[in-house]
């Protein structure tokens, strides 16, 4: 083996530990999950019976899974755009010089550093209809108390509100990093050409931010599809399945009903839903600008 060929192996040696870890802890569970979705698993009896597509046949007839699928799609259609637009707005706002704006950067980012479990508990307490902070404030200013998480009509919107609050700061920081990458000389050239703030935003900033924006949209979508903690802590999918999401049904079937095969089938279905959603996003948000 020549010295040059020997050196060409070195990069692979460097990434080998990561790939071994990825294979063991990610790829293997994926394959095992796919395999389990074709089985009826009785964990304590330690038996696995091959049942073909029976889990998937049950899946498409299960009204709870149908409801969870609709909820998951609606949740993503509402939360992801709101989070991205708000995060972009805040990123542009704090991407200016000034001590006050720098303080706002930390302020907006604060929800991102709070544990999701802790945040969910706090919001559940704030939403409590009879003793919560929000209703206390509403009553204090003469407005009627709301039902929030306890009513079918308000529960999903209340959950979305909390999730938007929790995520916006995080995505703002990512977008802010993208904004900082845009060379000032391009903005200055646009000013010299007579472009106003609006024109500069839509014709310069947004196109040049698009690689970061695509990452934020895709990553936010995947995270929102996999949302579990707020549902588990705040609503347990209720009332009357108004807030149940596919990820929560994976948990419920795996660990409450010990139906690992069925839960694996839901995971597989969720994977397909995410793949389709992300493919659509990739197609429509193709990055065409470089700098």
């Amino acid at each position: 083996m020549t010295r040059r060929r020997a050196w060409s192996v070195v990069p692979y040696l460097f990434i080998a530990p990561a790939m071994v870890g990825f294979g063991l802890f990610k790829l293997y569970p994926i394959m095992e999950g796919l395999r389990l979705s074709f089985y009826e698993v009785r964990p304590i009896a330690r038996t696995q019976d091959f049942i073909g597509l029976a889990n998937f046949a049950e899946l498409v007839r299960d009204p709870v899974i149908l409801k969870a699928t609709v909820n998951t799609l609606l949740f993503n259609l509402a939360v992801t755009p709101v989070q991205v637009v708000l995060a972009l707005g805040l990123a542009v706002l704090v991407n200016r010089k000034g001590r006050v704006l720098q303080a706002f950067r930390s302020f907006f980012f604060m929800p991102a550093v709070i544990s999701l479990v802790v945040a969910s508990i706090i919001w559940k307490l704030m939403y409590a209809p009879d003793s919560g902070l929000i209703n206390g404030l509403l009553i204090a200013v003469g407005l009627p108390a709301q039902t929030f998480l306890t009513s079918q009509s308000q529960a999903m919107a209340s959950l979305m509100g909390m999730v938007v609050w929790k995520g916006v700061g995080y995505w703002m920081v990512i977008l802010l990093a993208g904004l900082k990458e845009i060379p000032e000389s391009i903005q200055e050239a646009a000013i010299v050409d007579g472009a106003g703030p609006g024109r500069r935003f839509f014709s310069v900033t947004l196109p040049l931010l698009s690689p970061t924006l695509v990452f934020v949209v895709v990553a936010d979508t995947v995270i929102n599809f996999l949302l579990f903690v707020p549902v588990y802590v705040m609503t347990q999918g209720g009332p009357s399945e108004a807030t149940t999401l596919l990820m929560f049904e994976v948990y419920r079937n795996a660990f409450v009903y010990t139906r690992f095969g069925y839960a694996a089938a839901i995971s597989t279905a969720l994977l397909l839903v995410i793949a389709v959603a992300v493919s659509i996003q990739m197609r429509f948000l193709r990055v065409e600008f470089e700098y």
């Binding site: 990610k26 895709v218 995947v222 990820m247 994976v250 995971s267 969720l270 995410i274």
Partner: peptide, 13 residues
């Protein structure tokens, strides 16, 4: 993306 997504699903449960 698909592989990573399923990895997240698996890891999450």
């Amino acid at each position: 993306t698909i592989v990573l997504s399923f990895a997240l699903v698996s890891g999450g449960i």
